[in-house]
Design a protein around this nucleic acid. Structure first.
Lengths: 224, 224
DNA sequence: CCGAAGATCATTGTATACATTAGGCTGCCA
DNA sequence: TGGCAGCCTAATGTATACAATGATCTTCGG
């Protein structure tokens, strides 16, 4: 997209993700325009995008606020992501090319290095993890899945999840990626789908354990 | 949303749905502004919304075109809709109130009347069908499901599907709605989910039979 | 003293003018 | 004659000014 509105989008999103703009905070277009150094026009475009991604809510009179995510929202988000990503994996398994599998392996190795550095390189992990899933989405060849998942993956929780992974979590995630690659090499949709479901659900529980010690959600309903 | 940008959105969407703007047609902001009687600013907002709904595509240089939907895209759309709506139905079954069930019954009756009028009232059918599914979405109490389905339901194919329903299709749809209400009255998530899946898949096949006589898609893979 | 109504202020919606950039046309050169 | 280069045109991106609308504060009446 355009330069200014993209910058504004990135800046505002980071302000929300970093907690600089706390949940429920009022968002004024003019104030943001000043902070971002652009006019209100690109700010408005950025706010529309952020609203579509549910990072921002608007009250009945179009005033914007930072959305607050309850634990139930987070759980629902992970489940939707699981549905969509597993479906993408199934489609990808039928269509993925050897070139795409090679790229998966490249990111897979990079993640391995990031984990086993003297100190785990979380930033590199997140980066290549994102690219890894991006290749699968590309291989799924579904504009609609891509469209929907794009809105989910950039959300606060997904970022904070990986940041709080233990070494064990990181290694488990890495192993699951390896399993996904194997499923793709065999072009086995059911296998890829199953691994992906497991992968996302594991991520949810890693998040839940860190962020809500007091409440272990009853998964018997949700996970079924 | 705002008055002018909403009107612009509705006008442009109708131009696409009616085929006035055919697939692949170039979309110029200024030309549309003139046709809609507003300035480019609300037009741009409308185009962003339509792009998010995949009714419009943008090339690498931000120029807009009417998206073309292949039969595979349509199939994928129905499957995504099935996933999301069945999930909404499951959630709704756990949470739906008697007041909401009453509203479902109201729309159910209205649909019945629309079907059995001297000449089936397609417009009324579509309207109350939309409201019926809207109540379920409301009862699901998931902002994220609502958000995602809102983008899908307004798409060209969904509209054209009902328009081409035979009397038999209409009655079958009506019966399935009745079944859904029963599932909700018993607060049975599995039942509601199953009926909804069947409901959406039936809609897909009704669409496919009308629009592609030449190719009956191999559902063994997709439906699975 | 409390409540309601009106005015003022703040914020968002729209229009227009300007900047920037991609695409195309024409003319020159090989 | 074909291809490339530079200008020209058209379309999008951004800023700013203005309009409309909702919120808040003040004041007047009960």
């Amino acid at each position: 997209m355009s330069r200014a509105s993209d910058r504004a989008y990135a800046i505002i999103r980071d302000m929300i993700l970093s907690g600089d703009l706390p949940s429920g905070a009022k968002i004024g277009e003019e104030a943001l325009a000043e902070q971002c150094g652009v006019s209100r026009t690109p700010i408005r475009e950025a706010l529309n995008r952020l609203e579509a991604e549910l990072l921002i809510r608007r009250n009945d009179t179009q005033r914007s606020f930072v959305a607050d995510w309850s634990i139930d929202d987070v759980e629902e988000m992970f489940e939707l992501r699981g549905m969509l990503e597993s479906r993408a994996a199934r489609r990808a398994a039928k269509r993925i090319s050897w070139e795409q599998i090679e790229r998966l392996k490249t990111h897979h190795e990079a993640i391995g290095k990031a984990i086993h550095a003297t100190k785990p390189d979380t930033h590199s992990f997140i980066e290549h993890n994102h690219l890894f899933h991006g290749v699968i989405l590309e291989a799924s060849a579904s504009a609609q899945l891509t469209n929907m998942l794009a809105r989910i993956v950039e959300r606060p929780i997904v970022h904070r999840t990986a940041r709080n992974y233990s070494l064990e979590d990181l290694e488990r995630s890495h192993r699951q990626h390896g399993e996904l690659i194997a499923a793709f090499e065999h072009h086995d949709p059911a296998w890829a789908e199953a691994v992906m479901i497991s992968h996302i659900r594991r991520a949810f529980h890693a998040y839940a354990n860190v962020h809500i010690d007091q409440r272990l959600p009853d998964m018997s309903q949700a996970a079924e």
